[in-house]
Design a protein around this nucleic acid. Structure first.
Lengths: 219, 219
DNA sequence: ACAAACGATTAGTCAAGGCTAAAAATTAAT
DNA sequence: ATTAATTTTTAGCCTTGACTAATCGTTTGT
């Protein structure tokens, strides 16, 4: 199975959009997520269907096949391992990682990947806290709840961010939050749903509910 | 100046074939070095000429322009830094490095490159002993002579290999030689030009003159 | 010096992967 | 229940970069 970089990119995005390849996604959504025109996405979907990477019925959206899921997970695995390299070893900040990892992920060398993984010490999560699929494609998920669902007074660890936009990541940096940071929910404001948070036992910050909704924590 | 991966590959190979872009190279030689057909090389030469990356007169070969040299050196710099990463950090053996580095070299991110260089401790030579161009494109060469030119009894350090074929690199591995290894020329056999060599003050090996001709040393 | 051989270029084809514009299918609105 | 709006697909075009086959220049051998 020889996939091009473009095909891999589409598979990766389809996988992410469709919640692990379970639900069907639309051409327009895919095109938007890829920053391309619907016509191009439609084209590619047809090609991927011919290669048995997804099931497709005209005008009714596409859903990854088992084979497609496997390939997508492989790409995501490569992507996340490079992310760890960039963040941990090259000291990239959160908002600089994604673009470069998207380029590096297409190097198809089994040896490179296994050596890289070993070099990084077999990390289990990427810099955003998302689990990294293992070599067989298994994804170990951890129990996680939205920060907003935490009871007042409870401590937890930030394990993941849902939004990875540069603006959002910059904001997190500013308030001293990061994956693995210890936080304690001090109070919830009834009026607008904003919260008061103790970060790393040092800093108290106020956070809007829309920000808090994007943070997942492990109590 | 936006170069595609294919254009970068051609520039790199042209640079190497033409001894730093100084001498003119032929279409056939280029095609052979790229493992492609002459028609394809001819095509690409025309395109590179249009982009002012080389000077070209039909039927008389091509020569890199100053701009072309600059770009080629930049590619070579990226390539060699990745080589160091693969060899030093990921423990790739000599014969596994080149192919993977040729894929990684096309990631165009200034930040990535400078961080990688810093991470590697600003190496000055690649795993084959060749100097790595610095960020401004300057190449610091070191005095080096062929192993065969060494006087009997003289010690020296292996600094470079001219041939990088897997077979040759495997052979070097087998006799315990590597870039940076200390060697002493014990004797030369008049009859066939072969030599007797002490490697790393431990092992004595006999080496044919054709092998020895591919090793450059620094006395 | 002229034909053969060799090397380089052109012409035409193909696949990938993007685009725009137009047509077709589906969904929503009156 | 038609019309209108939206979504999806098709059709046609473009660029990159490879190929083969054919032609054009240069070089060489006798």
């Amino acid at each position: 199975m020889e996939l091009t970089a473009a095909e891999e990119n589409y598979l990766k995005v389809i996988y992410k959009l469709s919640d692990g390849g379970k639900t069907s996604i639309s051409t327009n959504d895919l095109a938007a997520a890829m920053s391309m025109k619907p016509a191009s996405a439609s084209d590619m979907i047809k090609r991927l269907a011919e290669k048995k990477l997804l099931d497709y019925r005209k005008y009714y959206g596409a859903e990854l096949s088992e084979l497609g899921k496997k390939q997508a997970i492989e790409v995501i695995r490569r992507n996340k391992l490079w992310m760890v390299f960039l963040a941990d070893r090259l000291k990239f900040s959160w908002d600089e990682i994604d673009q470069v990892a998207d380029e590096l992920e297409h190097t198809r060398s089994g040896l490179l990947l296994s050596r890289l993984e070993e070099f990084l010490g077999y990390p289990k999560v990427d810099p955003h806290g998302e689990p990294i699929p293992d070599v067989s494609g298994a994804i170990q998920t951890r129990p996680r709840i939205p920060l907003l669902a935490l009871p007042i007074g409870q401590s937890a660890q930030i394990v993941s961010v849902k939004d990875s936009s540069p603006a959002f990541l910059k904001y997190l940096d500013k308030i001293g939050a990061y994956i693995g940071a210890q936080v304690k929910l001090l109070d919830k404001v009834e009026f607008d749903g904003s919260i008061e948070l103790l970060v790393d036992q040092k800093r108290t910050v106020f956070m809007s509910s829309s920000i808090a909704a994007n943070l997942l924590v492990m109590p």
